[in-house]
Design a protein around this nucleic acid. Structure first.
Lengths: 354, 354
DNA sequence: TTGTACGCGTTATCAA
DNA sequence: TTGATAACGCGTACAA
């Protein structure tokens, strides 16, 4: 079992100095054709590759991006990672993933672990717990230490950093308007508690659509699910809540859900209660994932273009990383300008709407 | 914008030597109570954290695990990552993810990028293209350079490394036997081409179950899907193939599919053709993911326990990493012993079977 | 054309 | 009790 070969070993073996080897490998004109070839041949033979860690230390740059997301078993987040990875690799960056599991503590710890030299910047989506606590000191600290952050999807606008978001309000509004034009009179929404920023915004879009069409919102048609009730494998609580919603509002003919799971569950419950889809009841879900595409009937959704979000976020981060370069002593006080990019959603119509 | 504070800066500020600071922070008894407190207070104030990169270089150990998987938008792989991450973080390791996108070249490049000091070992599942080419030199080289690999799910037994797999044959067999005991007489299988190791094994299990029950296998009941036909968003090809299967075998009363997508598609096609589930047709799928759980009717599946696989793989790798430590000069020739751990599957019965 | 010396941030060893 | 030095692997400015 031979260890990885280093410049030092090559130098010793060939009886030249380390810097000669280094230069020879980088095709420096300082080195004679002769030794250059000799060194390169030897390096190839032993499959020499520069040690990334040493380079990172020397350059104070790891060429690695840290991603922190609440959970990975989630089509949207996976898609975003795919997008980030695509762009990052193309530009010579690696990607390192940390999961917060929707926990504040894990988010903080994970960021600390990564921020100590392992990565050059973060791309992240905030955990629910953090949003609820509204404690953002770890983001501020990270940024103050000169490490850029790009937030996506679940963002906090107080934090000075680039952001990539979806037009949640508009996307939700378009969806609800679709239901309205399709003839729905009694549209329910299944959403999250308000501290989840995207849930709140989508609820806003729902209300706005109603208002525009002079439909009086009814609080009994608004179900705000407390996802603390929901463990991964116990969906009974959710089903019961949804069932209650239908039973206390017999006239419901449209449902807008802020995520796939809520929509699929609503569909299941509705069918059990005898609704025919889309004749008696039409549904649209935010987030386009596997569930929507493959459910029967298939679900109409608001697509968020997760991969595009990831790509955009990676581009923003890398641009900033390569721009900041050498900013150390110059216009330190110059006000930084941050972008917030809005990725347009679009409505994908499938079988759950007419 | 203050850069991260280093030992050197603290030393200068407090007018002591770097090594004094280092020792003070590590609570060395060599240092006087007095200076120790002074240093620690200062370090806390400036939020000092040791630079991971420098530590990695010094210790020749990054405490980071590299994961290479074919794709992330896949419930099973996501679950495995979750499991790996869980164990890794608990033991002080980070996790860095590379995607091969089922491509041989990307697999090789990704491994090279990571193997140069960034990580201490790999956990990976082989890409389809690699399996097809049967070119495994990159695995062999990596292992020869002293970097341990743990393979999971899609493995190659020729490579000397630890492996975590599922009892694919047995799991498939149990599933098909369930269909048989439930009264199915004409059971079709929807599987992959044979070069996908797990597809082949599951097909084997299917055949074995039939044989045990003295049922003659019929090639017309075996559909081997060529997934090169299938782009992410074009599932028509798959649907057509499945439809053909049903139309040329009117007596099919049971379907075993090697993954969720195939199963859900089969269910959709069958319902379109007028089958009632589970009365006319029963289905079981390998792989337990979101699709199965939330489809209507919900799908009975063979659960692979992705998270358990990830946890086991991480444990294997970390154990080996911490065992190898200092093995440099001792019994170098001692034959390494590798484990292959088999994670038992179990059948989850839902509405698609009686 | 080649080699020496330094620094990136840390720790371990040895000297003061 | 503290400090100087070397080392991890690399690249580069400068000296030979």
């Amino acid at each position: 079992m031979k260890r990885k070969v280093t410049l030092k070993q090559i130098a010793k073996e060939l009886d030249v100095s380390i810097s000669t080897v280094s230069k020879a490998l980088r095709n420096s004109i300082e080195i004679s054709e002769d030794t250059r070839q000799k060194v390169q041949a030897f390096a190839k033979l032993y499959n020499y590759r520069p040690n990334n860690i040493a380079l990172s230390l020397k350059n104070r740059k790891s060429n690695t991006i840290g991603i922190i997301i609440p959970e990975i078993v989630h089509h949207f987040f996976s898609k975003v990672i795919t997008g980030i990875e695509l762009v990052a690799n193309k530009k010579g960056y690696n990607v390192i993933v940390g999961l917060s599991n929707e926990s504040f503590d894990k988010e903080v710890i994970n960021m600390q672990m990564l921020a100590n030299g392992s990565i050059d910047g973060f791309i992240l989506s905030i955990s629910k717990e953090t949003l609820q606590h509204q404690d953002y000191h770890h983001f501020v600290e990270t940024i103050n230490q000169g490490m850029p952050i790009v937030m996506f999807d679940r963002v906090v606008h107080e934090i000075p950093c680039d952001k990539v978001i979806v037009d949640d309000v508009k996307g939700a509004k378009k969806a609800v308007e679709k239901l309205i034009t399709n003839g729905c009179k009694h549209i329910a929404i299944i959403t999250t508690k308000d501290y989840v920023s995207v849930g709140k915004l989508r609820t806003q879009g729902y209300l706005s659509a109603l208002e525009d069409h002079k439909i009086e919102p009814k609080s009994s048609l608004i179900l705000k699910v407390d996802d603390k009730l929901l463990s991964d494998d116990n969906l009974d609580a959710l089903e019961k809540e949804v069932e209650l919603l239908f039973q206390s509002n017999k006239k419901i003919d449209g449902v807008f859900a802020v995520n796939e799971l809520y929509a699929v569950t609503a569909m299941k419950v509705a069918r059990k209660l005898g609704y025919s889809i889309p004749d008696d009841l039409q549904l649209i879900s935010f987030t386009d994932g596997v569930l929507s595409k493959h459910s029967t009937p298939s679900l109409s959704t608001v697509s968020q273009h997760g991969q595009a979000i990831g790509e955009k976020a990676a581009n923003l981060l890398i641009n900033r990383l390569e721009m900041d370069h050498g900013d150390d002593n110059e216009y330190d006080e110059e006000e930084e300008v941050y972008e917030t990019i809005i990725i347009e959603t679009n409505l994908i119509e499938r079988e759950s709407t007419k």
